[in-house]
Write a protein that binds this DNA or RNA. Structure first.
Length: 211
DNA sequence: GACCAGGTCCTTG
DNA sequence: CAAGGACATGGT
């Protein structure tokens, strides 16, 4: 019955792909995706959208603008996303890193994925999930995102692993293609939101069925 | 009113 | 290293 972790992982991918097909997820230019990646930490996406709108109204929805902005004005704009003081600090740290280390987003895009990842992880407030979200959805790199939903779904499929091992597992199973990475991660999140956390976790049922 | 949301950091044992 | 707390607003 239960095969290797990689075959279980491949089955999750296949089953969810059959369940959803193509989905459109995490729209926006690179600036917006980077900012959204911080705002969405432990926060519903609808509130992130509001925060991004508030930033746009103040012409603060770009890395360069945030770098020069008054922290209190950032706080006011993103208040609706919660944790607004910490997130302001994190946005400032991220913007400072990009502007001072690379001179801007466009310049940053010329560097290889592993170098960027290493740098992002050194920024205070940027952990693995946020870094990979930035790389995958902002810079369109093949860096698979592991979040709490991925852990939930993999738990359903009896693949309890650490984040780093899950990331390696998915990247080993999937073709190294950004579009595939984005689709797969989106499927996992949508599916977990829809089916996990119920009395009888329906995600477990589908994930363990024959797709 | 309790509980949770597309995490991360800091402090303790 | 694992576990627990802090950060904070908005929706169910």
């Amino acid at each position: 019955m239960s095969g290797s972790s990689s075959s279980e992982c491949a089955r999750i991918v296949r089953v969810l792909n059959g369940h959803y097909g193509h989905v459109s997820w995490w729209p926006g230019d690179t600036d917006e995706v980077l900012i959204g990646a911080v705002l969405t930490q432990q926060t519903r996406w609808e509130n992130v959208v509001r925060g991004l709108a508030q930033l746009k109204e103040r012409s603060l929805c770009s890395v360069a603008a945030l770098h020069n902005a008054d922290p209190e004005e950032i706080e006011r704009a993103i208040r609706c996303t919660g944790f607004y003081r910490v997130k302001t600090r994190r946005l400032k740290a991220l913007a400072g890193f990009i502007m001072e280390e690379y001179g801007g987003l466009a310049e940053m895009a010329g560097y290889p994925t592993d170098i960027l990842r290493e740098g992002l992880l050194r920024v205070s407030g940027i952990g693995e999930e946020t870094a990979d979200s930035i790389l995958c959805y902002g810079f369109l790199r093949p860096s698979f995102v592991i979040d709490s939903y991925t852990h939930q779904i993999c738990g359903c499929a009896r693949i309890p692993e650490q984040t780093s091992r899950l990331k390696a597992l998915f990247e080993q199973v999937l073709p190294p293609d950004n579009e595939t990475y984005r689709q797969t991660h989106a499927h996992i999140v949508e599916y977990a939101k829809e089916y996990c956390g119920k009395k009888r976790c329906e995600a477990c049922i589908l994930v363990n069925s024959n797709g």
